[in-house]
Amino acid sequence: MGFMQKVFRRSPWLYRINAGSCNGCDVELATTACIPRYDVERLGCQYCGSPKHADIVLITGPLTARVKDKVLRLWEEIPDPKVTVAVGICPISGGVFRDGLPIEGPLDRWLPIDVNVQGCPPRPQAIIEGIAKAIEVWSDRQ
């Protein structure tokens, strides 16, 4: 592993996209970041406000028709190489909203997903597990 690869592994910045989620997964993401019990900052992660700073993007929600174009545009704004993580069963398969009228998902019809985190919502440890997997994928891409 090269020096830069080691550096990249220890500083993955996270960005969240809500693709029509019920906010359950978003709450768990906030929990993962903010409460002392599950501290993602010790992995070097940092939630950033701008998609241009992001390395790993976490997408929640089943991709509703209204947000589809916005989500795709936002995703395009994130510089390569990026790793896309689908958090919760909605972006993975549609979950309980599958085959619903306003649902354009699952997400991998439109975007290349790298890591899936199962759960409805996933518990914070599962999200951390997913982020750890995403970091592996990300360092392989450098």
């Binding site: 830069m4 550096v7 990249f8 220890r10 500083s11 002392p36 501290d39 900052e41 010790r42 510089p79």
Partner: peptide, 24 residues
């Protein structure tokens, strides 16, 4: 981080962040 009862990033985390940004 300590005041919020978290572990927090290592002391050299800003160096790592800057190095990473320089590589993008």
């Amino acid at each position: 981080a300590r005041m919020q009862r978290r572990v927090g990033p290592p002391l050299i985390q800003p160096f790592i962040d800057i190095l990473k940004l320089m590589g993008k």
